[in-house]
C-alpha cells in the first residue's frame, strides 16, 4: 500500500493514501454494458435489467443534445461509470486543463461510481491520433506517468482508474513488465486499476507472453473493474476489435481474473457491428458461467480466414448517426 503522503494544494490537502482507500471502498457493481447510441431508445423505453452502464466520457462532456439527456436519464436509474479515451496520461504534452475541467464537471453532474481511462498516450504536439498508443515501461516513464496521475487525481478530487491497453508493439528499452508497472503506479499514486481481460489476451499473444502468468502477477487487489470483449485473430497477431462475441479463451482467463479480483465489476465492450441490446446483454450474461469452477486453458485459436484485417480500437461508434435524426419539412 502506498504511504499516506500528504501534499498541499491551495486550500485542499490531497492524501494519496486516501485515494487508495477510496479505491478499496468502491462498490462491486456486477455485470454492466457500455452505453451505446444505437441502444439509447431500447434503454429508455424498456429499462432493461442491467446492473450498470459505462459511458464514454468524451461523448457526453460537451453534449447539449440527446446523448447528454439520455445519460442523465440512465444515471437516474442505474449506476454509471465514466470511461475516457483521450486523457493521454502517458503523453509528454501538458495535461489538457480544458479537458480535465469538462471531465470534472461531467463527473460532478453524473456522479459516476468512478472515472477511468487507459495507460497510454493518444498524441503529442497538440495532435490526437484517437488511438491508445503504448509507452515504454521503464522507471523513467513510471515516474512521468505517476506524476501526471497525481495531478489528475488532485484536479478531479477522486482516484483515477487506469486500464491496461491492448498493444501491438513493445519497446526494446522496456525494463518493467506491465503488471509490475501498474502495481508500482498504483502504489505511488493510489490509483485503481481496470483489468481488461481481452487486452491481456491480445497483448500477451502479440508479445509472446503468457496471459495466465500476466493475470497471476497482476495486482488484482487494486482492480475495480474488468472489461471483456471480442477480438480478431490474424494468425501473426490479434486485433482488439470489440466487434464480436468474447472468445472462449478470454472467458477462461476471465474465470481466473474473477477469482483473483474477488469478483470485480465486469463490463462487456461491443463497439463495432453492434448487435441488438438483447444480443449484447446475452453475451454479457455468459460471464456468470465463468464465476466458478476450475480454469481450463486447453483451447485453440480461431484464426480469421477472410484475410481482411478489422479495425483495432474502433471509434466510429463514438460518432452519432446524425442523419437518423434529421427531418425534412
Amino acid at each position: 500500500m502506498a504511504p499516506a503522503v500528504a501534499r498541499e494544494r491551495s486550500t485542499l490537502t490531497i492524501d494519496i493514501g486516501s485515494f487508495a482507500a477510496d479505491v478499496a471502498a468502491l462498490p462491486r457493481l456486477g455485470l454492466g454494458l457500455g452505453l451505446r447510441g444505437t441502444h439509447f431508445d431500447h434503454i429508455l423505453t424498456e429499462r432493461p435489467d442491467v446492473e450498470w452502464f459505462e459511458a464514454i466520457s468524451e461523448n457526453f462532456m460537451d453534449s447539449g443534445g440527446r446523448p447528454r439527456y439520455v445519460l442523465d436519464q440512465v444515471a437516474e436509474q442505474y449506476p454509471v461509470v465514466l470511461h475516457g479515451v483521450s486523457l493521454s496520461i502517458g503523453s509528454t504534452d501538458p495535461l489538457n486543463r480544458e479537458y480535465l475541467a469538462k471531465l470534472k464537471a461531467l463527473a460532478d453532474a453524473v456522479t459516476p461510481a468512478w472515472v477511468s481511462d487507459h495507460l497510454c498516450w493518444t498524441g503529442v504536439l497538440g495532435a490526437n491520433s484517437h488511438d491508445l498508443l503504448p509507452i515504454p515501461l521503464t522507471e523513467k516513464t513510471l515516474h512521468h506517468v505517476a506524476e501526471r496521475v497525481r495531478r489528475v487525481q488532485d484536479f478531479l478530487e477522486r482516484p483515477l482508474i487506469l486500464e491496461n491497453p491492448s498493444t501491438y508493439v513493445t519497446f526494446i528499452e522496456s525494463t518493467i513488465d506491465e503488471p509490475d508497472f501498474l502495481r508500482a503506479l498504483s502504489d505511488e499514486t493510489g490509483c485503481g486499476l481496470l483489468l481488461d481481460v481481452n487486452n491481456v489476451y491480445v497483448s500477451c499473444f502479440n508479445a509472446d507472453l503468457d496471459p495466465v502468468g500476466y493475470i497471476e502477477s497482476f495486482p488484482c487487489d487494486r482492480v475495480v473493474q474488468m472489461h471483456v470483449a471480442g477480438h480478431e485473430h490474424q494468425g501473426t497477431h490479434i486485433i482488439d476489435t470489440h466487434d464480436r462475441p468474447v472468445v472462449p479463451e478470454v472467458w477462461e482467463l476471465y474465470r481466473l481474473a474473477w477469482q483473483r479480483t474477488d469478483g470485480a465489476s465486469t463490463l462487456l465492450e461491443w463497439d463495432g457491428h453492434i448487435p441488438s441490446f438483447e444480443e449484447c446483454h446475452a453475451e454479457l450474461l455468459k460471464a456468470r458461467r465463468y464465476m466458478g469452477g476450475q480454469f481450463n486453458a486447453g483451447r485453440s485459436h480461431d484464426v480469421t480466414k477472410s484475410g481482411h484485417e478489422s479495425l483495432s480500437t474502433p471509434v466510429d461508434f463514438l460518432v452519432p448517426n446524425v442523419m437518423e435524426s434529421a427531418v425534412s419539412e
Binding site: 468524451e58 461523448n59 479537458y99 490526437n128 463514438l318 460518432v319
Partner: peptide
C-alpha cells in the same frame, strides 16, 4: 489537419 481535439466531434 490532423485531429487536435479530445473529441471526434471536432474531426
Amino acid at each position: 489537419y490532423p485531429s487536435e481535439s479530445y473529441t471526434l466531434y471536432e474531426l
